[in-house]
Design a protein around this nucleic acid. Structure first.
Lengths: 214, 214
DNA sequence: TAGATTGTTAATCGATTAACAATC
DNA sequence: TAGATTGTTAATCGATTAACAATC
């Protein structure tokens, strides 16, 4: 079971490469060198080559990288070349905002279900998707082969809801609740802790203010 | 102008310490050792002590750390001991979700203004805050001494909107747009790239599936 | 005092950058 | 062929962990 040895840091950068390559592709650029890309992205060319070579020799000496080819290869690495159905647990403001956000669909992530335990929301439709009661979760997951769940419930319910999701067969949780989930290690958890992000902003803000220098 | 030498990695962990200490405080725990905290948080005790000692000797040999004291010290470091007024630029789904989210206020971040360039939204109220047209941005920022702006506009408008914010005096941008902003270095930018987060989740998901082992 | 636990230095580990031979 | 640029190895840098003397 040797854990695929790509470092966390590299994986974190992969979507950003993908974004820049997408923009290059749109602008009709056919090929790009690590040096040129490094300038655009504000990273070292060395790092770009090292990162990409974790996955394979996508480039060609003397030429650089073919934008379209590299874009597609990274798409495969990230799994955005296929459709992933996703459900959202917790249909409050954030859950609805995620459901409404059409851009995820472009990367293959399709919201197919919305759930909540607040009966006032039952039947409400967001982008044509009806909010369902939690009681219907188990059957929905297995009937639709859902693997990804976005968790946008209050902190107090997050842990037990996550455990339920795992029991029902969910393989990956996109966690927006302000808590750690501590699930079996084969379950993928990607945390989005907005309040922590805001605190980091604040930390940096008060320090740039201290020394008023430009 | 020597850049305050605390490493990015340490700052990233600070809000998580704060969260755990808050929970300990709520549960009535008076003191905690780095060893005990390390077990709860699943990090090494050594790291905790190293991290905290970047900012000062908050502990006491033979005793550990006083929970309330440490909690308050970290609050000061993060700047969550004071109120920060924040405006939201882009009052679509995500902007409204952020405005509706009451928890930020507990950490001192208060949404005081909502803006959009879609006139259909003008006058709409979210938690009592009216959506204003972008034309009123400049005066609002200076009149209310706003330093923080959450940017939840479409990617295509993000860069020029950010530049406008900086021109009007904004010091920190919480960027939800799927693009890099590239602003003067004295401007704090904290990125929340949700689609990149989802791609990382996807990356890890397809790899745990590949080797079906538990 | 003896035990506990920090603050801090030293050792290890990993990630980034530099350099260059391979090759298109 | 000559020039360009990769893939990859080696050198550097930084972050994490281990160890332990200081001290409450």
């Amino acid at each position: 079971m040797e854990k695929n040895g790509i470092s966390r840091a590299v994986i974190k950068r992969l979507p950003r490469y993908y974004r820049y390559l997408g923009e290059l592709l749109e602008s009709g650029t056919e090929r790009i060198s690590s040096g040129e890309l490094s300038q655009r992205m504000n990273v070292t060319a060395s790092q770009i080559r090292q990162d990409l070579n974790n996955f394979g020799g996508f480039g060609q000496q003397g030429y650089g990288y073919n934008v379209e080819y590299l874009y597609n290869e990274i798409a495969k690495l990230l799994g955005v070349d296929k459709q992933h159905n996703m459900i959202i647990i917790g249909s409050g403001n954030l859950g609805q905002a995620l459901a409404n956000y059409t851009n995820f669909q472009k990367s293959g992530f399709v919201v197919t279900g919305l759930f909540d335990n607040n009966e006032k929301l039952y039947g409400k439709k967001v982008r044509g998707i009806e909010v369902l009661p939690m009681e219907r979760l188990e059957k929905f997951i297995s009937a639709n082969h859902i693997e990804i769940a976005a968790l946008t419930v209050p902190k107090s319910e997050a842990v037990k809801t996550a455990q339920m999701l795992v029991k029902y067969g969910i393989k990956a949780i996109w966690n927006f609740a302000h808590t750690d989930l501590d699930l079996p290690k084969e379950i993928v958890v990607e945390n989005v802790h907005l309040s922590e992000s805001l605190m980091r902003l604040s930390y940096n803000l008060i320090r740039t203010e201290d020394c008023g220098s430009v």
